[in-house]
Design a protein around this nucleic acid. Structure first.
Length: 297
DNA sequence: AGCACA
């Protein structure tokens, strides 16, 4: 059971101008990081472990590597340290003999406004601006725009004072903002659906860049990259059609730095995710795409 | 100008 639905997903990225840095003492580290979880620990378990602690604000589980790493942000350094001590050597799971270790982090956990530990660290840039910084083909890790979002790497702790744990703490995804756009005429497209097809990608297009671009988009679910000789294509699934439509429009022609063809072409997929049953049953020779199921009215 | 996976 998935419970009562998604708790607090932000349906759309916050507009620019959020999180005024002057409001908070940014110098004070009030984040702890926690190790020792069993490999199957869930982010929700971390949240539920900490949510009643005084001053708890947000947490996040990082699943790089063998064992999950938890990060938790508190309202003050004192609250963070108290929680750190409370968690120290806590037996998390008797079956797997998992004992937690906690330390102060080097940097504070970066939390998107309104999101507490939901694990999507990729930042959105202001899509309405259609940043056109062509000339600069340096991959930007973080938007060049009005608000520079810190790369997730910036808050990954350096693990000092403890045995060499996961010093290889890498970000799961490095957010990538397109450096610019080229006009893209989209000749034949398909009816809107929850899956986008990405074309006009060169053979050495980096999957990491694509993931950096798309995984932070609102409603992103999963993506798959396909190499086809000197072409690369990519499928991106979204939670709903509206999310796909937004990205289809906003990122059309966005420049993919690792591609040698400039802008990407975004189309709706012919075979969207989650439709297998439908189109398998529609073998009556009728027009594909016309389904008998009605989702509206 | 290229549409996989369930």
């Amino acid at each position: 059971m998935a419970g009562a639905g998604p708790p607090h997903y932000a349906p759309w990225p916050p507009p620019p101008g959020h999180n005024p840095p002057s409001m908070i003492d940014v110098d004070e580290v009030r984040t702890i990081f926690i190790l020792g979880f069993p490999p199957d620990a869930k982010e929700r378990e971390l949240q539920n472990l900490l949510r009643w602690w005084p001053g708890y604000e947000a947490s996040q589980m990082n699943f790089k590597g063998e064992q999950p790493m938890g990060f938790a942000l508190f309202s003050s350094a004192a609250a963070a340290m108290a929680a750190k001590d409370a968690l120290q050597n806590l037996v998390f799971d008797y079956e797997t003999n998992s004992t937690l270790r906690a330390e102060m982090a080097k940097k504070n956990l970066y939390v998107k406004r309104g999101v507490t530990g939901m694990g999507t660290e990729a930042q959105l840039f202001d899509q309405s601006k259609r940043l056109r910084t062509a000339g600069d083909y340096t991959p930007h890790y973080g938007p060049p725009g009005p608000f520079g979002a810190p790369s997730p790497a910036s808050w990954v702790p350096q693990s000092y004072g403890m045995p060499p744990l996961q010093s290889a703490a890498q970000p799961l995804v490095t957010p990538v903002a397109p450096v610019g756009y080229v006009p893209m005429q989209n000749m034949k497209d398909n009816p809107p659906c929850n899956t986008l097809f990405v074309g006009n990608l060169g053979e050495n297009t980096s999957e990491a860049e694509l993931r950096g671009i798309f995984s932070g988009q609102p409603g992103f679910k999963q993506m798959k990259v396909l190499r086809q000789g000197r072409n690369t294509v990519c499928f991106i699934e979204f939670v709903d059609v509206n999310s796909a439509v937004a990205v289809h429009n906003n990122l059309q022609g966005a420049i993919v730095t690792s591609s040698d063809r400039g802008g990407m072409r975004l189309q709706y997929s012919k075979n969207p995710f989650g439709r297998k049953r439908d189109f398998m049953n529609n073998q009556d020779g009728g027009a594909p795409g016309v389904t008998t199921s009605d989702t509206s009215t």
